[in-house]
Design a protein around this nucleic acid. Structure first.
Lengths: 119, 119
DNA sequence: GGTCGTTATATCTTTACGGATACAACGGCC
DNA sequence: GGCCGTTGTATCCGTAAAGATATAACGACC
């Protein structure tokens, strides 16, 4: 492929993988990272800040995930100690583990195909 | 995974794969289809029309591909019989074949992972 | 030389997405 | 009850991508 697609250029293989429903995207690499940040920091706003993402965007993503899941992936609380917070549920933890494994296999696939491209 | 990510919903696995350079995207599934349409119809405008895409967008994509390739994938001619047209070069044909094969292996990967998700 | 359909290009508009901002509601805690 | 930080929600704004439109250049063919 390299010889066909021009020796003077270096092409990178890249890709995305995600789970979706009829209502749209459910879980991808971005949402996965958001879940991990929420799990680590205990709040949507802190997770958003850590990712350089607006709170609105983070909240929209969490809302989308919870709306599409029969069991919410993130449990939120308004008010209370420290004003509230967010927790990744058991279902959310399981989703993290499962998708990370899937993502790892995908990276492996891309690495393999990258080698194939470079002959 | 199904049991973790809610039995009542059916999740589809989906993804994208593409080649890129420092100048941006080079070849993906959309550009591949465009190349095939150009090869089949002999013009950018007809290909765009067949894909429900504006001519400008199609031309931009062709321009981007040619700019990133040392050897153009599409050769165009303005004026002449039937006003001109576009032809997919040998390099373009090779790119089509190579990327279609890659895409097929990617589909196979996703099908495999889909089975894994559904236990 | 006129016709024709296409490439090539510029410009303006439309649309979609996310960011920015503002603010009400909430509920432990002092 | 007041404070505080977060969730939840609405509204406005900026920007980037694509569509719509217009037009010039081109070259075979009659």
């Amino acid at each position: 492929m390299k010889s066909l697609l021009l020796p003077t250029r270096s092409y990178r293989l890249n890709g995305r993988l995600w789970l979706e429903t009829d209502d749209g995207r459910f879980l991808g690499i971005g949402r996965l990272e958001l879940l991990e940040q929420i799990a680590a920091l205990g709040s949507i706003s802190k997770a958003a800040q850590a990712m350089g993402m607006s709170y609105k965007r983070a909240w929209d993503l969490v809302s989308s995930m919870n709306a599409q899941a029969a069991t919410p992936l993130v449990s939120t609380q308004t008010g209370g100690t420290k004003g509230g917070g967010a927790v990744v549920t058991e279902a959310g933890q399981a989703a993290i583990v499962a998708f990370k494994a899937l993502q790892a296999r995908f990276q492996e696939f891309m690495a393999l195909e990258t080698n194939r491209i470079h002959e």
